[in-house]
Deep mutational scan, measured.
Amino acid sequence: KYLVLALYDYQEKSPREVTMKKGDILTLLNSTNKDWWKVEVNGRQGFVPAAYVKYL
């Protein structure tokens, strides 16, 4: 498993997404889509914009 760092705040806009705050450390679950990565944060799984996170 990889960890990624939230570069920006992101507010979920659909039930498939998750909210994150700048500085959050997220567990990367799937990065096959170049635009949306599946992550786990605070016990929830969902998608965030790939451009908003970077590998640690």
Rank of each mutant, 00 (worst) to 15 (best):
Q45C: 10
I25R: 06
K22V: 08
E12P: 15
T27S: 10
D35H: 15
G43L: 05
T32Y: 11
Q45E: 12
N33P: 05
L28G: 01
K34R: 11
V41I: 15
Y52R: 06
K13H: 09
R44T: 07
M20S: 01
G43R: 05
K13I: 08
L5P: 00
P15L: 10
N30S: 14
K38C: 12
F47T: 03
K21C: 10
L5G: 03
T27G: 06
Y2L: 14
S31I: 10
D35R: 13
T19I: 03
Q45P: 07
G46T: 02
N30H: 08
Y2N: 12
E12A: 15
Q11M: 13
L29I: 15
A51H: 13
N30M: 08
P49V: 03
S14Y: 07
L56I: 13
D24L: 04
A51S: 14
K13A: 13
S31A: 14
D9Q: 03
W36G: 00
A6W: 04
T27F: 12
A6P: 01
D24A: 07
V18H: 03
N42A: 10
L5D: 01
V18L: 15
K38T: 07
D35M: 14
A6V: 09
Q11T: 15
M20G: 00
Y52K: 07
S31T: 12
N30P: 03
Y10A: 01
W37Y: 10
V53D: 00
L7K: 07
V39W: 00
R16G: 15
S14E: 09
K21T: 09
V4P: 01
N33V: 05
K13N: 10
L3Q: 12
Q11G: 07
R16K: 13
K22I: 06
L56R: 05
V39I: 08
W37C: 06
S14V: 05
V41P: 00
E12F: 06
P49E: 01
T27M: 13
D35I: 14
S31N: 15
D9M: 03
V39H: 00
L56C: 11
T27N: 10
L26F: 06
Y52H: 07
R44L: 08
E12S: 15
D24M: 12
A50T: 06
Q11V: 15
D24S: 08
I25E: 04
A6Q: 01
V4F: 08
P15S: 12
R44N: 08
K34N: 11
S31L: 08
L28W: 02
E40T: 07
D9K: 02
N30Y: 08
N42C: 09
K21Y: 10
Q11F: 14
Y55H: 12
R16D: 14
P15A: 12
E17F: 07
Y8M: 14
F47E: 04
N33T: 07
K1D: 09
K13V: 09
M20D: 00
T32W: 11
E12H: 09
L29M: 08
V53E: 00
M20R: 00
I25A: 04
W36Y: 08
Q11R: 10
T32I: 10
G23Y: 05
S31M: 12
I25F: 06
W36H: 03
L28M: 05
V53A: 03
G23L: 02
V53K: 00
E40C: 11
W37I: 09
L28H: 02
K38I: 14
Y10P: 01
K38M: 15
D35E: 13
A51I: 11
V4N: 01
Y8G: 06
T27E: 11
G23A: 03
K13P: 04
D9I: 02
Y55Q: 13
L5A: 07
G46M: 04
Q45M: 11
E17V: 05
Y52D: 03
Y2A: 14
G23N: 07
E40P: 00
R16A: 13
T19H: 05
R44Y: 06
G46K: 02
G43P: 01
K13F: 05
T32Q: 13
E17Q: 12
K38R: 11
N42R: 11
S31Y: 09
